[in-house]
Amino acid sequence: MKAAVLKAFGSPLAIEEVPDPVIGTGEAIVDVAAAPVLPYTDEVLSGARRYLLPPPVIPGCGAIGRVSVVGPDATKLKVGDWVFCDPTVRSRDDAAMPDIVLQGWSARGDGGQRLQQYHRHGAFAERVRVPTENAIRIGAIAEAEAGHWCALNTLLVPYGGLLAANLRAGETLLVSGATGHFGSAAVAVGLAMGAACIVAPGRNEAALVDLVRRFGARIRPVTLTGDEATDRARMVAAAPGPIDCVLDILPPSADATVVRASVMSVRPYGQVVLMGGVGMLGGDDLALPYPWIMRNDVTMRGKWMYPPDAVGRMAGLVRAGLLRLDAYAVTAFPLDEASAAVAHAAAHGGPFRLTVLRPDGTARSPSLPA
């Protein structure tokens, strides 16, 4: 099969013929219809993100495709099923504390690296092998829709955080990082889950205006000034009442003061979920006052990715019309142009934009109207 191979960090992706994946028990092989190219893929492949992804490797974080082979222990998955290839692979020998690897992307800890030795190659290829439970059925779709269904890869991340926060219909949510690729997805998901209002802080005023255009008066934009006290006061004032939940999903380049201003806008007894990358690449870590957390009875938790059942639940939100995948403008590249796709994703990674690889050779696909 044809695949895009990372030979060394910082080198262009090499398009090569590689052996087809061989199935084992508890696995499926999927023909890749579309694979998302995340906006920071260039940072991963250059080594700037310091992800544990030892080359040579076929990168790629998730895919939409059709099952071509199933293992002998599959009871519902069938050849021909349309599936989301969930890159979040969990070890099976400790249900309480599974090691996790993002297939074709990153690993954490010694256990994750051991898991990665087997579940190594990602979806920048014509076919990908995944654990059976990671080939998650999404129902029938048209071939041309595969690129838009790659939006699940982005939407699922904040969905995992909002599920962890137990966000309830009618609550007020603040999304820290609302103008970014994942933050704008958090806005869409929060509204689909029934948030009455979303406070959306950011420095990109055009992106804030666009969020209001897309979603209306339920969005309360806040232009950040860079002064922590001022920004926190603006966030609190923008909300129609107490802020029930804060989701931070800012990237590693963000300043910790921005995150702290958002977090400390939450009401007493509120929920805070941290999903971003502050401190990941050095710089100041997030420092929060112990007395403030304790006396206000604030619940704080970290969350990496999403629970296994989230994919089916999110597909249900899409099928119900609560989440519109056609809000995303999709640009598709053939596999032979993988390096060009990576560059395009880096340059066009704003809200509601997707770059995808189409191993079937489909050239740049027309975008549906936003």
Rank of each mutant, 00 (worst) to 15 (best):
F9H: 11
L13A: 05
I15D: 00
V18H: 02
P21C: 02
V32Y: 05
A35Q: 07
T41V: 04
L45F: 03
L52D: 14
L52G: 13
I58G: 02
C61V: 11
A63H: 00
R66F: 05
A74K: 07
T75I: 11
K78I: 01
V79A: 06
G80I: 13
D81R: 11
F84V: 10
D86G: 07
D86P: 07
P87L: 03
V89Q: 06
R90E: 12
R92C: 09
A96T: 08
V101A: 15
Q103A: 04
G111M: 02
Q113L: 09
R114H: 13
Q117K: 15
R120D: 03
G122T: 11
G122V: 09
A123H: 06
F124M: 07
F124C: 06
E126W: 03
R127N: 05
R129V: 01
V130I: 14
N134G: 01
R137F: 00
A140M: 06
A142N: 10
E143M: 03
G160R: 09
G161K: 07
A165Q: 04
L167S: 09
A169L: 04
G170S: 09
S176L: 03
G177W: 01
T179K: 12
G190Y: 01
L191P: 13
G194T: 09
G194W: 10
A195Q: 05
I198E: 03
P201W: 00
R203H: 06
V209W: 05
V209N: 11
D210T: 08
R213M: 08
R214W: 13
G216S: 05
A229V: 08
D231I: 02
R232L: 11
G241S: 15
G241P: 10
P242I: 00
A256Q: 12
A256I: 09
T257C: 13
V263Y: 12
V263G: 13
M264R: 15
V266S: 10
V273G: 14
G277E: 09
G279N: 12
G282D: 14
Y290S: 13
R295H: 10
G302I: 12
W304V: 15
M305Y: 12
Y306C: 03
M314C: 11
G316S: 12
A329H: 13
V342C: 03
A343K: 10
L354G: 04
S365F: 00
L368H: 08
P369V: 06
P369G: 09
